[in-house]
Design a protein around this nucleic acid. Structure first.
Lengths: 330, 330
DNA sequence: TTGTACGCGTTATCAG
DNA sequence: CTGATAACGCGTACAA
């Protein structure tokens, strides 16, 4: 490996001068600077970031910890984070917890040990423990799912989105919409369920709620069973696009058609939503922008800018009406 | 920040003993070891990975550089890599190049500077420059898309998959299948096109090929135009699932139905494939396993095991027949 | 403006 | 088995 001293020797200057030219950290005689650059070129020198980080007592790396890389919502968030990060000169350590609390804890531990400059976390549960990074004063921005404790937080208006969706369903004439959601310790899912139940209550209707674990496998049976009940739901609100897929599959097996026999609406505007038949109505979240905003907020924290109190940023959701909620007159 | 010396003082031992107990690198008197562990606990000590990496002259981090985080194929690969990595005690630096050669080069540079232990790369083009990591002797495994030069490489049988797909189309009675593919410097896309053309030629049919750039926007128009031609294709083979979405959208706008008016088959078994109407036939790649195998191969390279010559691993693809290729008798 | 020398926090070597 | 100490490669006071 070729070190800074090698460059210094080649350029006939001191290591300090090499360091200074490479980091523009002080004025350097243009002649020497040129010699340094030539030597760097000639030797193919590449600064050792590890040593630099040790000396600087800090890295240029962020950790982004999400629960499911297969969820297009999170990959969109990740792209938002990544774009802003690379713009600002940070690298992103992307960690996938698989909705596993233990894995999440391990990643937080790794982040702390690697002395990352900041962490963006989509927590598994609303009482996830984040003391690992907090104790080390590592800036943390929570994204998507709220934590019980006050922290910097970027999310979408889940409750309102669910209200929008449920009201749209009822407006079309569906009377027994069900809400397919995720475990109750998932903040976002819970907000959506509450929004749904709120509308149902106001309309004097009985909520029908089903919770589906993340490591599915059972949701297909659950949906088929639900469809076979005596007072089966006549519509569905699913709180993420993977659950929408499950419901669509269930309808298919039952020989039912959305936009005709049942209404379907889901959170997240997946890329396939406009292409299924009929196209799926959705509550879209600005996923990419959420990631980008979380990143910008983190950047401010890393630079210790802005107010000290935790910031919360709630981005609005959009109802996109397609065909899957239609209810023909009968 | 709390350092190893603080622990040593608290436990009334030397730093060497602390280090040894924490790394199990040598026998330590159980009594002292217990005192160390107690001190670690009490002080909340967490080893500084940056310092460790400097001293050990190496990290426990891999870089995974892919072209598009939104492509479910690559997220599946990433999961495979990540699972094996975390099993083996490595962290993964996930980088998204957005099909941008310059971004890819920057990430390779970052990987080299961060002294990652290894790199897994899905290159933008078949003549991407990987000398940045090769010069520094950083083990490299290329995944999915081949490079012109010999390197460790894990991929799926693209040519054969395309042959399978095209023959299936013809078997159903379609006579003018078109191939919608990606730029010709994308090794995998090119293999698929060649497989398609090979079958067409053997059947004495004229190939119809369209290349679509990655930053789409134009593919919708292209497909609509293609559909409007005099001798419009009566079937489509798309080489990835995003192109399939484009084709399905085009058919929808043209009022055509797959599995009736046209046949459609695509590479990659996306999660939505079984749910569109009719369900989409596909050539499935073992994406997760490809990632896992690439990771295992990289792990061997990092440990300098196995033969020195570049290894190539070609995993087989599977034709999954659903409804989208059906051709009713007329 | 330049160079020398020390320290960042660990691990590994070498005496004891 | 333990402890003192020299690296690891870089950035930056401080002195020149």
């Amino acid at each position: 490996m070729i070190r800074i001293v090698d460059v210094a020797r080649e350029a006939q200057v001191s290591v300090a001068t090499v360091s200074r030219t490479l980091n523009n950290s002080a004025r350097v005689d243009p002649v020497l600077a040129e010699r340094v650059r030539a030597a760097v070129q000639k030797l193919g020198y590449r600064p050792n970031a590890v040593a630099r980080n040790l000396r600087r007592r800090g890295t240029q790396v962020w950790a982004l910890i999400i629960t499911n890389l297969n969820n297009p919502f999170y990959t969109a968030v990740a792209r938002g984070v990544e774009d802003v990060a690379s713009e600002l000169g940070y690298s992103v350590l992307l960690c996938n917890t698989d909705e596993d609390q233990a894995k999440q804890d391990r990643y937080l531990e790794v982040a702390a040990m690697e002395r990352v400059a900041g962490v963006i976390l989509a927590p598994r549960s609303d009482d996830s423990d984040v003391s690992t990074v907090q104790d080390d004063q590592i800036p943390l921005v929570v994204v998507d799912r709220a934590l019980r404790q006050p922290v910097d937080f970027v999310t979408a208006a889940s409750f309102e989105g669910a209200v929008l969706a449920t009201e749209h369903l009822l407006r079309q004439g569906w009377r027994r919409p069900a809400c397919i959601t995720r475990p109750a310790d998932t903040a976002t899912a819970e907000q959506r369920r509450l929004g749904y139940e709120d509308v149902m209550r106001r309309h004097g209707l009985a909520p029908v709620v089903r919770h589906v674990g993340f490591h599915a496998g059972g949701s297909a049976e659950m949906i088929s069973a639900l469809l076979a009940e005596r007072d089966a739901p006549d519509a569905f609100l699913t709180i993420d696009s993977m659950l929408a897929l499950d419901v669509l599959g269930g309808l298919q097996r039952a020989g039912l058609h959305s936009g005709r026999d049942v209404g379907v609406i889901s959170f997240d505007d997946a890329s396939w939503a406009p292409v299924v038949d009929p196209p799926l109505s959705v509550i879209a979240q600005p996923a990419y922008e959420m990631g980008a905003e979380a990143a910008r907020l983190l950047a401010r924290r890393v630079r210790s800018e802005g107010p000290a109190e935790p910031q919360t940023m709630i981005m609005s959701t959009t109802l996109i009406v397609r065909g899957s909620c239609r209810r023909p007159k009968r």
